[in-house]
Protein backbone atom coordinates (compact mmCIF):
# COMPACT_ATOMS: atom_id res chain seq x y z
CA UNK A 1 0.00 0.00 0.00
CA UNK A 2 1.22 3.50 -0.84
CA UNK A 3 2.15 5.91 1.90
CA UNK A 4 -0.45 8.61 2.71
CA UNK A 5 0.02 11.97 0.97
CA UNK A 6 1.37 14.03 3.87
CA UNK A 7 3.82 11.24 4.66
CA UNK A 8 4.90 11.20 1.00
CA UNK A 9 5.69 14.94 1.07
CA UNK A 10 7.70 14.57 4.28
CA UNK A 11 9.64 11.65 2.82
CA UNK A 12 10.45 13.63 -0.31
CA UNK A 13 11.78 16.49 1.81
CA UNK A 14 13.77 14.13 4.03
CA UNK A 15 15.60 12.85 0.93
CA UNK A 16 16.71 16.29 -0.27
CA UNK A 17 18.20 19.38 1.27
CA UNK A 18 15.45 21.65 -0.08
CA UNK A 19 12.72 21.40 -2.74
CA UNK A 20 10.46 23.98 -4.42
CA UNK A 21 6.73 23.41 -4.00
CA UNK A 22 6.26 23.21 -7.78
CA UNK A 23 8.52 20.15 -7.82
CA UNK A 24 6.79 18.61 -4.77
CA UNK A 25 3.37 19.08 -6.40
CA UNK A 26 4.66 17.46 -9.61
CA UNK A 27 6.08 14.48 -7.74
CA UNK A 28 2.93 13.94 -5.66
CA UNK A 29 0.55 14.16 -8.61
CA UNK A 30 2.79 11.81 -10.59
CA UNK A 31 3.07 9.25 -7.77
CA UNK A 32 -0.67 9.07 -7.07
CA UNK A 33 -1.76 9.49 -10.72
CA UNK A 34 -3.67 12.72 -10.05
CA UNK A 35 -4.19 15.74 -12.28
CA UNK A 36 -5.77 19.20 -12.11
CA UNK A 37 -5.74 22.46 -10.22
CA UNK A 38 -7.71 21.00 -7.28
CA UNK A 39 -4.94 18.55 -6.41
CA UNK A 40 -2.23 21.18 -6.98
CA UNK A 41 -3.94 23.54 -4.52
CA UNK A 42 -4.71 20.73 -2.10
CA UNK A 43 -1.01 19.85 -2.00
CA UNK A 44 -0.06 23.50 -1.37
CA UNK A 45 -2.53 23.66 1.54
CA UNK A 46 -0.92 20.51 2.95
CA UNK A 47 2.49 22.20 2.72
CA UNK A 48 1.05 25.25 4.56
CA UNK A 49 -0.21 22.94 7.34
CA UNK A 50 3.20 21.28 7.63
CA UNK A 51 4.83 24.72 7.83
CA UNK A 52 2.40 25.97 10.48
CA UNK A 53 3.05 22.85 12.56
CA UNK A 54 6.82 23.48 12.30
CA UNK A 55 7.68 20.20 10.53
CA UNK A 56 8.98 22.03 7.47
CA UNK A 57 10.01 25.63 6.84
CA UNK A 58 10.16 27.81 3.76
CA UNK A 59 13.75 28.80 3.04
CA UNK A 60 13.12 30.81 -0.12
CA UNK A 61 10.16 32.26 -1.98
CA UNK A 62 9.63 34.06 -5.28
CA UNK A 63 6.99 35.21 -7.72
CA UNK A 64 6.91 33.29 -10.99
CA UNK A 65 4.76 33.22 -14.08
CA UNK A 66 2.93 29.88 -14.21
CA UNK A 67 0.60 29.35 -17.15
CA UNK A 68 -0.01 33.07 -17.63
CA UNK A 69 -0.63 33.92 -13.97
CA UNK A 70 1.78 35.21 -11.38
CA UNK A 71 2.14 32.80 -8.52
CA UNK A 72 3.97 32.84 -5.21
CA UNK A 73 6.08 29.73 -4.80
CA UNK A 74 8.08 28.49 -1.81
CA UNK A 75 11.19 26.40 -1.38
CA UNK A 76 10.86 24.06 1.61
CA UNK A 77 13.23 22.26 3.94
CA UNK A 78 12.55 19.65 6.61
CA UNK A 79 13.18 21.02 10.15
CA UNK A 80 14.93 19.03 12.91
CA UNK A 81 11.51 18.80 14.62
CA UNK A 82 10.01 17.46 11.38
CA UNK A 83 12.71 14.80 11.22
CA UNK A 84 12.05 13.94 14.87
CA UNK A 85 8.31 13.64 14.19
CA UNK A 86 9.03 11.41 11.16
CA UNK A 87 11.06 9.09 13.40
CA UNK A 88 8.20 9.07 15.97
CA UNK A 89 5.68 8.09 13.33
CA UNK A 90 7.83 5.56 11.50
CA UNK A 91 7.96 7.60 8.30
CA UNK A 92 11.75 7.65 8.09
CA UNK A 93 12.00 3.88 8.41
CA UNK A 94 9.65 3.19 5.52
CA UNK A 95 11.07 2.94 2.01
CA UNK A 96 10.56 6.14 0.08
CA UNK A 97 9.16 5.92 -3.44
Amino acid sequence: MKIHQKGFLLQQLSNSDRIWDVELVKRLLGYYGLTGLYWENNTRVTLDELTAAGLIKSVDRKLVDLGGRTQLIFEYQLTPFGRERMIDTGLLQEVSP
Binding site: T51, A52, A53, G54, K57, T79, P80, F81, R83, E84
Partner: peptide, 15 residues
Protein backbone atom coordinates in the same frame (compact mmCIF):
# COMPACT_ATOMS: atom_id res chain seq x y z
CA UNK B 1 2.28 35.77 13.70
CA UNK B 2 0.42 32.53 13.05
CA UNK B 3 2.15 31.26 9.91
CA UNK B 4 4.03 29.06 12.37
CA UNK B 5 1.98 27.92 15.32
CA UNK B 6 4.73 26.56 17.52
CA UNK B 7 7.60 28.19 19.35
CA UNK B 8 10.22 25.50 18.99
CA UNK B 9 11.57 24.02 15.80
CA UNK B 10 14.66 22.46 17.24
CA UNK B 11 15.15 18.87 18.20
CA UNK B 12 13.58 18.17 21.54
CA UNK B 13 11.88 21.53 21.48
CA UNK B 14 8.47 20.20 20.71
CA UNK B 15 7.36 16.67 21.35
Amino acid sequence: AITTLRDAQSEGGAA
